[in-house]
Amino acid sequence: MPMPQEYFHASRDFEAFMEALRRISLLQTTHQCYTMVEAVFHALRCHMTPREALRFADHLPPVLRAIFVSAWDVEAPVLPLTDRAGLQREILALRHNHNLSTPSALEDVGAALHETMDTAEFHRLLEVLPREFASFWR
């Protein structure tokens, strides 16, 4: 079987995502964007069971999938669902001295995903995301 194209083009697709996120968020560098996307993914992940999180990750592009599951303590208790303000506080808590996430970090990451992913795959991603969170990306 040949190598899947999503792996063959993983770096190119990740760079496109990061550039889209930089443009959408108005952050200065993709390094700043990296911390923001990591914070958004980890904040979302804390509110999902491992099964839910892995279903979600399966629909992300490969490099973003790796970021989503990195440094994950699967034994940690699942936090109850929270509102947008609660998620924003969690996002800003990651490396708080070096985190320049925007007030619209949730929406910015969703917009960059929507822009750079296949439309059908993006909609499948929304279908497996908890409904309360999917509303941020619609």
Rank of each mutant, 00 (worst) to 15 (best):
F17D: 07
M48Y: 01
S70R: 14
Q88T: 04
L60D: 03
S25K: 07
S101T: 12
F17H: 10
F136V: 04
P130G: 05
A53V: 02
H96E: 13
D118G: 00
L81D: 07
R65W: 04
L92V: 05
Q28M: 07
P80S: 12
E52A: 13
R45I: 00
L106N: 02
H98I: 07
T30V: 15
L94G: 04
H42K: 12
V63D: 06
F136N: 03
H98Q: 13
I91G: 06
L54D: 08
F68K: 04
R12N: 09
P50H: 01
A112T: 03
P130A: 04
I67C: 00
E19V: 09
T35Q: 11
Q5D: 12
R124C: 10
L113F: 06
F68S: 04
D108P: 06
D118W: 02
F122G: 11
R23K: 15
E107H: 07
N97T: 12
Q5C: 00
D13P: 06
P2N: 10
R95W: 03
H59V: 01
P77V: 09
R55T: 05
S70L: 12
P103D: 06
A134N: 08
T102V: 12
E6M: 11
A16L: 12
A105K: 05
A112I: 08
Q32D: 13
H114P: 00
A105S: 09
E15N: 15
F122R: 08
P61S: 07
M117S: 09
